[in-house]
């Protein structure tokens, strides 16, 4: 006869196949949370051992409801079913709590605590990288919007400079450091811009300083991302640039998820519009999405790009798996070597 063990927030219960309770271990309200959390793991705890000792059965006759190392498990089992039917009554009759209200108060605290622990564990380094990538995108678009306004504003005062400096970033940085046209050029006196007072020009400069700060922040973040990506994805960054690796990561949402993706998804990620157009039956299948940014693809001949994309995607998916499951550094080098050879082969 098998004995079925289940874990409940108030303790451990053992039942036989007919639904008769054989033994139990009831936690104390003060230390119940810790004991429950410990017992939820796959390792055998003191409480598990205590219950098994009470039962006096051989290990192979014991069936747990959760996975326990070295034991059989069945879900749901009769013990869990019985306990889940009467848990609040059991909590009172075993003396664990005085009334149902107290039990549910405890259960709320227990669940909240376990959830807090899991949230903490889910706050991994890859999340930081993802936010940094998104922040760069937002900063870039915001800074460019603001720069357009600055150009119009500054154009009232010294439009000739806009002709000479085409890049938004450079222009903003020039105006931020010194907006006065007589300091910027010798022939400023010939400008068709209006003659504004110092106060007007300073107002404009203050605005430029903020935008300039954004462009600097983007540079800083890019450096941060490169550094962080090398650390979190040592193998992937052997194959593609840290920037592209981070973009792919940001697109998917976590290292865990990306490690579990099929390489075909990696290949066309970022080309969803074309992909769905293709699935709907209108248009060819996309050859590459984000990975097009890799020079090995965008610098290849057009007819080679499909093959190379497939190759790169499959190599990347292995590399992501290495980075998520095991960070052995030598793997990436070997992978890169093989990848280069494959690319060499399809050239011929």
């Amino acid at each position: 006869m098998y004995t079925y063990i289940s874990l409940a927030p108030i303790g451990l219960f053992a039942y036989d196949a007919d639904g008769k309770q054989l033994a139990s271990i009831i936690f104390k309200l003060d230390d119940a949370k810790g004991r429950f959390i410990d017992a939820s793991g796959s390792e055998l705890t003191e409480d598990d051992k205590g219950l098994i000792k009470k039962l006096g059965k051989k290990d192979d006759q014991i069936i747990f409801e959760i996975q326990k190392d070295g034991f059989g498990s069945e879900f749901p089992n009769i013990s869990g079913e019985t306990v889940r039917n009467n848990i609040s009554k059991l909590a009172i009759s075993t003396g664990f709590v005085k009334d149902a209200g107290q039990y549910y108060q405890y259960l709320n605290e227990l669940n909240s605590e376990i959830t807090r622990i899991s949230i903490k564990a889910a706050s991994t380094e890859d999340r930081l990288l993802i936010h940094a990538v998104s922040t760069i995108d937002e900063l870039e678009s915001t800074a460019n919007t603001l720069a357009i306004r600055l150009k119009e504003w500054y154009g009232l005062y010294y439009p000739e400079l806009l002709e000479r400096v085409r890049s938004n970033e450079k222009l903003v940085s020039l105006i931020a450091s010194n907006p006065k046209r007589e300091d910027l050029s010798d022939d400023a006196g010939l400008s068709m811009g209006g003659d504004y007072s110092d106060e007007d020009v300073i107002a404009l400069q203050n605005y430029a300083i903020i935008i300039d700060g954004m462009y600097r922040q983007i540079k800083d973040l890019e450096a941060y991302i490169d550094k962080k990506a090398l650390m979190i994805m040592p193998n992937v960054t052997r194959i593609v640039s840290p920037t592209l690796a981070s973009r792919l990561l940001a697109e998917v949402g976590s290292l865990e998820k990306i490690a579990k993706l099929p390489s075909s998804t990696l290949q066309v990620m970022g080309a969803e519009k074309a992909l769905f157009r293709h699935i709907m039956g209108q248009g060819p299948s996309p050859k590459h999405g984000l990975i097009f940014q890799a020079p090995v693809i965008n610098q290849a001949q057009k007819k080679q790009r499909g093959k190379r994309s497939r190759m790169l995607a499959s190599t990347l998916s292995i590399a992501f798996r290495m980075d998520y499951f095991d960070k052995c550094l030598t793997g990436g080098d070997l992978l890169k070597e093989k990848f280069d050879k494959k690319i060499e082969n399809i050239k011929g």
Binding site: L107, N108, N111
Partner: peptide
């Protein structure tokens, strides 16, 4: 609202959260 029990788990695998819930 202490009548809500927050459980961070995968609904696909009830075995993982069954010990914290009831019928």
């Amino acid at each position: 609202r202490t009548n809500i029990m927050p459980i961070l788990s995968d609904a696909r695998i009830p075995q993982r959260f069954a010990s914290r819930v009831e019928k």
